[in-house]
């Protein structure tokens, strides 16, 4: 094989350590590890996501997983103040190493919620102005993704980044994908999506197609969590017992029904068509107690329009659930305190 081209490129390529000084480890996941680093040139801080080698030393398999490809392609293409910015991708073919350099964020929403909630015996409510500004920016980023036919599919507090100046950015697009004229149904390939607490009821009931409404349900859960400083539907995940069958997430649905009531045909016309709808019978009779639940858990929060928006995000029927674009236009954001972008 003629390696003239390979050799020419190898000679020119810079390694991670030629451009960045790694300062410390941030976290790790199934994909790999994230480090904090600063640019040797500008001193600016970055988060570097280094992908774990797919199947270790197997040189005949691809090092770019489908998820790495999606994350690179999507974050490289988009440009929005409320979505994490990709600075560059660094590769080291010989080591089969892929590193994505992102903006460094001081905090994620999980940490912020933790400081208001779990860390304190008597939860400290979040200021309405902060809550509203975070939600507004989240919706602003999500509306942009949806307008570009991208679903995030894994929205949760840990994936929402807060920059030093207060800007909110949607992060971790490793599960994101396009939904415009997909060649295969969206369910193929990645069967279980979205951390269980933020998973939409249609997915829990076995829906085959993801829609924008799935992301909006997650945003609704996050909004409620900002208000009560604890997760709204904290279900126990049913684990996979065998590889062929996806388990029915009974406990998560129970947690939802306890607060929102069991969905009726009137609320959700297509409910009988969902693969797992037969399981609905075993749930008994829960009534909607959402309003009193919120009053009890956030006694000082009394925004009428805020509660209206929240209930629209948590509408059972995905077709009737509010969209990101509509939510941005909701009266909640037009009354005091007005949201800011930072």
């Amino acid at each position: 094989m003629d390696r003239t081209y390979h050799n020419k490129k190898d000679a020119l390529r810079l390694k991670i350590e030629d451009k960045y000084k790694v300062q410390g480890f941030i976290n790790s996941g199934t994909y790999g590890e994230v480090y904090k680093a600063h640019s040797l040139k500008t001193n600016k801080e970055f988060a570097i996501k280094v992908f774990k080698l797919d199947k270790g030393g197997d040189y005949s398999s691809s090092a770019f997983s489908q998820s790495a490809c999606r994350e690179i392609t999507i974050t490289r293409e988009i440009n929005h103040e409320n979505i994490v910015h990709l600075e560059e991708v660094i590769i080291e073919p010989k080591e089969r190493k892929i590193a994505i350099v992102f903006d460094y964020s001081e905090y994620d929403l999980l940490q912020i919620l933790h400081s208001h909630g779990l860390a304190h015996p008597n939860r400290i409510p979040m200021h309405e102005f902060i809550m509203k500004s975070i939600l507004y920016q989240l919706l602003n980023g999500l509306a942009y993704l949806h307008a570009n036919w991208i679903l995030h599919r894994d929205l949760k507090p840990a994936n929402i980044l807060i920059m030093k100046d207060g800007t909110v950015k949607i992060g971790d697009l490793g599960l994101a994908r396009f939904f415009q004229e997909p060649i295969q149904p969206l369910i193929n390939g990645d069967k279980v999506v979205v951390t269980i607490w933020y998973r939409a009821p249609e997915l829990l009931l076995g829906a085959k197609h993801y829609t924008k409404a799935v992301d909006m349900w997650a945003i609704g859960c996050i909004f409620a969590e900002l208000i009560i400083t604890k997760p709204l539907f904290k279900g126990e995940e049913a684990k996979m017992e065998n590889k062929k069958q996806i388990p029915f997430q009974r406990d998560q649905l129970k947690k939802i029904f306890e607060i929102l009531g069991v969905p009726t045909k009137q609320q959700w016309n297509d409910i009988d068509h969902l693969p797992e709808s037969k399981n609905l019978k075993g749930f008994g009779d829960y009534k909607n107690t959402f309003e009193s639940y919120m009053k009890q858990n956030a006694p000082t929060w009394n925004s009428k329009s805020g509660f209206d928006l929240l209930t629209r995000m948590l509408i059972y029927d995905p077709k009737r659930r509010i969209t990101a674009e509509e939510a941005l236009d909701h009266p909640y954001f037009k009354e005091e305190p007005l949201p800011v972008m930072k």
């Binding site: 081209y5 040189y59 691809s62 090092a63 392609t73 490289r76 991708v89 590769i91 073919p93 892929i98």
Partner: peptide, 18 residues
């Protein structure tokens, strides 16, 4: 193995705009 290796070079040449 040649293709898996060259994937790195192609991605780089595209500047990761795909």
């Amino acid at each position: 193995a040649n293709v898996a290796e060259f994937e790195f070079y192609l991605m780089e040449e595209m500047d990761f705009y795909l």
